[in-house]
C-alpha cells in the first residue's frame, strides 16, 4: 500500500478526477453560476457603496480596503460551494439511509472521506471574482506585494478556510443525533454573512460576539489585514491557533458523535 500519505494523495486525485468529469456534464449550470457570481458582485458593491457616500468610511476602512474584505468573503463563498456544501451535505443523507456504515467500514479515515469525496465547479466563478477583487483592491489601496506579504496572506487564507471548514463540519456532525439539523447550516451561513464587512464596522458588543463566540473576524477581516500588510504577529499567531483549535474540535466532536451512531433501523 506504500506510505499512508501517498495513499491519501492518490485517493484524493482519483476522487477529484471523477468529480470533475461528472461536473463537466452540466455546463449550462456553470454558465448560470457565472451570471450569479457577477450579479452577486454588483449587488455587494452597491450595498457597500451605500456606506461610502459623502466622504464617510466604514469602521475606519477606506473603500479599497473594505473591498479586500469583500473579496475574501466572496472567495470563501466560492470555497463553500466548491468544497464544503457538496461534501458535508451528504452526511445527513448517509445518516438517514444508514449508508454511513459503508463509509465507516472503508480502510480510510471517515472524516477525510466525508470531507473530500466531492468537488463542484459551481463555486469557481465566485473564487475567481473573489481573488480578482482582492488583488485589484489591494493594488488600489497602494499595497506593494512582497513575497513575505504574499506568504502571510496565503497562510491566513488557509487558516480562515480551515476554520470555516471546522464550523461547517461541527454543524454537519450534529446530524448524527438530530437528522433535521442540516438546516442549521443555513443559520450559520446567514450569521457568517456578517463577514462581508470589516469587523470594526460593528458596534463593540457585536464585535466581541463575532470574535469570541462566532469567529467571523478570523474568517475575513484577518486575511484582509494580512493582505493590506498591517497584521501584527500576535494576531497572525492567534489566527493560526484558532484554526488549529477549530480543526481539533471538529475532529474530537466527530469521534465523540460516532460513539452515538447506531446505524439506521437499529
Amino acid at each position: 500500500m506504500g506510505n499512508p500519505l501517498g495513499r491519501y494523495l492518490l485517493t484524493l486525485r482519483r476522487l477529484w478526477g471523477t468529480a470533475l468529469a461528472m461536473q463537466l456534464e452540466y455546463q449550462a449550470n456553470l454558465l448560470l453560476e457565472v451570471v450569479a457570481a457577477i450579479a452577486n458582485l454588483i449587488g455587494s458593491l452597491l450595498l457597500l457603496s451605500l456606506f461610502y457616500g459623502g466622504g464617510r468610511a466604514l469602521g475606519g476602512w477606506s473603500w479599497p480596503q473594505a473591498l479586500v474584505v469583500l473579496g475574501v468573503y466572496t472567495l470563501l463563498e466560492g470555497i463553500t460551494s466548491t468544497w464544503l456544501r457538496p461534501n458535508l451535505s451528504t452526511i445527513v443523507g448517509h445518516v438517514q439511509q444508514g449508508t454511513l456504515d459503508f463509509v465507516l467500514l472503508k480502510p480510510i479515515d471517515s472524516q477525510f472521506w466525508l470531507s473530500t469525496t466531492r468537488l463542484s465547479l459551481m463555486g469557481l466563478p465566485e473564487i475567481a471574482t473573489g481573488l480578482g477583487l482582492m488583488i485589484w483592491a489591494a493594488a488600489k489601496a497602494g499595497i506593494r506585494t512582497t513575497p513575505w506579504l504574499l506568504c502571510q496572506t496565503l497562510l491566513m487564507l488557509l487558516a480562515s478556510g480551515l476554520l470555516l471548514y471546522s464550523l461547517w463540519f461541527l454543524v454537519a456532525t450534529t446530524s448524527i443525533w438530530f437528522v433535521k439539523t442540516w438546516n442549521a447550516i443555513e443559520v450559520l451561513r446567514a450569521a457568517l454573512s456578517a463577514g462581508r464587512y470589516p469587523i470594526s464596522a460593528y458596534p463593540a458588543a457585536v464585535r466581541t460576539l463575532f470574535t469570541m463566540v462566532l469567529p467571523v473576524a478570523f474568517l475575513t477581516t484577518v486575511p484582509a489585514e494580512a493582505m493590506l500588510g498591517r497584521l501584527t504577529l500576535p494576531w497572525l499567531l492567534l489566527s493560526l491557533m484558532v484554526a488549529c483549535l477549530g480543526l481539533a474540535l471538529s475532529r474530537a466532536f466527530w469521534q465523540f458523535a460516532l460513539r452515538f451512531y447506531t446505524s439506521a433501523s437499529s
Binding site: 451605500l50 456606506f51 461610502y52 457616500g53 464617510r56 466604514l58 469602521g59 438546516n183 443555513e186 443559520v187 451561513r189 446567514a190 450569521a191 454573512s193 456578517a194 464587512y197 464596522a201 460593528y202 458596534p203 457585536v206
Partner: peptide, 17 residues
Amino acid sequence: AGLVPFVMLAVWIESPA
C-alpha cells in the same frame, strides 16, 4: 436563517451613513 436584517442593522447603526 432570516437573520440578515439584524446583521445589517448592526452595520447601519454604527455607520454615520
